[in-house]
């Protein structure tokens, strides 16, 4: 594995695009870490993720010295929302990847390891979930569970585990025939021990890489759910919600069609750069993983 990482790094270094991706991610990592310094929460605020509101007026205000990025409708400060929204995006990405990976590894591992009707059953289940357009399924899950970030995470995990399960299953099928597994079995190790100590640890690296590089796509989907009104509560620092707040303002005021450009362009750019970072990195990694290009 260490060799693989070394090779990957070598590969990365030669690609300016992937370096740019790394740079973007590092900046977002910094913004997330330094959020309390970059955008100070109000002293009496109970939850720093709630964007401070400067009045109740419905019309957004353009960027100025007081609000660097302007305000959205109902005067939520965009700069604050963007900075703290970085944390939200990262946490959604990490949580979804973690949960869906855990489920995927478990299902795929068990299916591949035991085979037979059990395998058949689990794989048909993945077929069913994959046959539904993932947006529809995700929307239904969030609607049923009620809007909120936790349920967004749940919904996205619910639609993304099957592909991981398939990947893991494929690898488990080959790994379980390998010598060290057979050796462990000959030594009398139990099923669970073999599965979790020998088979899974040796089958999950590809899926780990694939899944973590999906973080960008996950954040996009989460933002899309927010856009449909299924995301964070009103006023919570979440990029998708900031964009959906701009929906009524894209045609501007009479006589000045671009009056409220900032309400959509600024949060849109934030999501774009974040996802771009992941995708630039992912693109390079996919090359490394693609056996046809070795």
């Amino acid at each position: 594995m260490r060799d693989a990482l070394k090779a990957a790094w070598k590969n990365l270094r030669r690609k300016p695009l992937s370096l740019a991706g790394l740079g973007l991610l590092a900046s977002f990592g910094f913004i997330a870490a330094a959020a309390p310094l970059l955008a100070r929460p109000a002293p009496n605020s109970r939850d720093p993720y709630l964007i401070p509101q400067d009045g109740y007026s419905s019309d957004p205000r353009r960027p100025d010295a007081r609000h660097w990025f302007g305000t959205t409708e109902q005067q939520y400060d965009l700069y604050y929302g963007i900075v703290w929204g970085t944390r939200t995006a990262l946490s959604i990405g990490v949580k979804v990847v973690f949960v869906s990976l855990a489920v995927g590894i478990l299902v795929g591992g068990l299916a591949g390891f035991y085979g037979g009707w059990f395998d058949e059953l689990l794989m048909r289940l993945t077929d069913v979930v994959m046959a539904l357009p993932s947006v529809i399924l995700a929307v239904v899950v969030v609607t049923v569970r009620g809007p909120g970030l936790d349920n967004v995470v749940l919904a996205l995990a619910a639609v993304s585990w099957p592909s991981y399960a398939r990947l893991v299953r494929g690898d488990v099928l080959t790994v379980k025939e390998r010598e060290f597994v057979l050796a462990a079995r000959a030594l009398g190790a139990g099923d669970m021990r073999i599965l979790f100590r020998h088979v899974i640890p040796n089958s999950i690296y590809p899926v780990l890489v694939v899944a973590s590089l999906n973080t960008g796509a996950v954040v996009l989907s989460a933002a899309a759910l927010s856009f449909l009104g299924l995301g964070a509560p009103v006023g919570y620092a979440d990029w998708g919600q900031l964009i959906s707040m701009s929906r009524n303002w894209i045609l501007g005021a009479s006589g000045s069609p671009l009056a409220y450009w900032h309400t959509v362009v600024i949060p849109g750019t934030a999501i774009f750069l974040f996802v771009l970072g992941w995708n630039l990195l992912g693109d390079a990694f996919r090359d490394i993983l693609d056996p046809r290009q070795r």
């Binding site: 929906r247 009524n248 303002w249 894209i250 045609l251 009479s254």
Partner: peptide
């Protein structure tokens, strides 16, 4: 559904 479109149509 969109207010802005309605407004544009009125204008």
């Amino acid at each position: 559904d969109e207010f802005q479109t309605r407004k544009l149509m009125l204008a």
